[in-house]
Amino acid sequence: MRFVHDTLPQRVRFASGAAAEELAAEVATLGAQRVMVIAGTAEAEPAARVTAGLPVVHRHDDVAMHVPVEVARRARAAAVEREADALVSVGGGSTTGLAKAVALTTGLPIVAVPTTYAGSEATAVWGLTENAVKTTGSDPKVLPRAIVYDAALTLGLPVTLSVASGLNALAHCVDSLWAPRTDPLNQALAVEGARALRTGLPLVAAEPDALEGREKALYGAYLSAAAFASAGSGLHHKICHVLGGMFNLPHAQTHAVVLPHVLAFNAPGVPDAERRLAASLDAPTATEGLARLYDELKAPRSLRELGMPADGIIEAAQAVLAAAPAGNPRPVTLDAITGLVRLAWEGAEPR
């Protein structure tokens, strides 16, 4: 056995119902006196509640999916104008992504308070979209210094969005099994994350107002993101970044739709990892386990229903081919990706 594994420097605070207290402790640790809070309008109330005791100089609610460059410019200007010395993000992946865009150019530290299962808070990956092209990169400056996980903050997330967000987290687990920098440590995180999500998401769907399922899903989402942060972006994420940027599709739902098709495509090339994933999903095969979970959760199935045009399939496949990572378990060809995207667009059974 021989590998190199990077563990990212980050504190994790997990305390249901105690976000305000834990967040205040982190801001005090930073010594911050001029905090910029980033939270979309939908998160305005919980953001105001958990940041009430902080030295806030600006509350920024101009948040958009896939972090358009013009949105990032406005947020960066606001941080400079208010002389902010720290950023607090309260929300999902778009909110965390905008905080990262500000940190990328200003170097300001981030404390992230997630309200979904997106996982962006645990990675050093940033993304910006311009002219229908999403560009991503990795930089230590954008990794939040700390994460405050409070499952109570996810109680307001509707079941449909909880399912999509949780399956996005599961996609981090699956992709980490064969991503460019995969190793035994992040694979262990991925397998345990998948197990937690397989347990937690059905509980969220069955009892959305209970904390047990929300906590398990949030725990699984962190493990999935920690695995992904180390392993890097595999084929699944390259496909979803292309589709999201090109057609402005909803992030979590796009990942949920694409995941079964990428798993069906790659699983034959990684039999050992497939067996471990199958065990985590409590099924004879990983594809069968994922199919059962999708049926149980009534998960989204079709890119067409998300707003992707049929005439975009070929263009998207060509862009994916250009972005596909080296070392994928199976050869990535234009025909293969075109077929995969077409099946996902139709909402057909993966094959």
Score class of each variant (00 low, 15 high):
A32Y: 06
E207C: 12
P271D: 01
G91F: 07
A101E: 00
I110A: 07
V133D: 12
L197M: 12
V67E: 08
D6I: 14
L104T: 05
A179K: 07
P284A: 00
R34V: 14
N186S: 13
F247I: 02
G245D: 00
S120M: 11
A146W: 01
M65R: 13
S230F: 03
D295V: 11
R82H: 14
A179D: 01
A122L: 10
M246P: 08
A317R: 02
A179E: 10
E130I: 05
A348K: 12
L201M: 12
H66W: 09
V12L: 15
A99G: 15
V88F: 02
L203M: 13
L297R: 08
G347R: 01
A86M: 06
Q33L: 12
R76T: 14
L321Q: 09
H241F: 08
L249C: 09
Y222A: 10
G327H: 03
G93T: 00
R145F: 00
R59H: 12
G93D: 03
T41K: 15
G307H: 09
P268A: 10
R11Q: 15
V50E: 03
L177K: 06
A47M: 01
P109Y: 11
A322E: 13
W178Y: 14
A101R: 07
C173L: 11
D295C: 07
A221K: 02
R275G: 01
A264W: 04
R73V: 11
A122W: 06
A323S: 14
T160G: 09
P140D: 10
A103F: 07
D209R: 15
S138E: 14
E192G: 08
E192H: 12
A86Q: 04
L87A: 11
I147A: 05
Q33T: 15
K238V: 04
A79G: 10
W126T: 07
R34N: 06
F14M: 08
S89M: 04
P68I: 05
G156L: 11
A84G: 02
V90T: 03
D150I: 00
I337H: 01
T115V: 09
L155T: 04
A20L: 04
M36S: 00
V174D: 01
A151R: 03
V27E: 10
F3Q: 05
L306S: 05
V35D: 00
P268K: 02
L293K: 02
A77V: 14
I239L: 13
V174A: 10
H5S: 12
P55Q: 08
A124M: 11
P329R: 06
A326Q: 13
A132K: 15
Q33E: 15
P271Y: 01
G92Y: 02
T123I: 04
V341M: 04
L98G: 09
L54Q: 02
P202Q: 00
F228C: 06
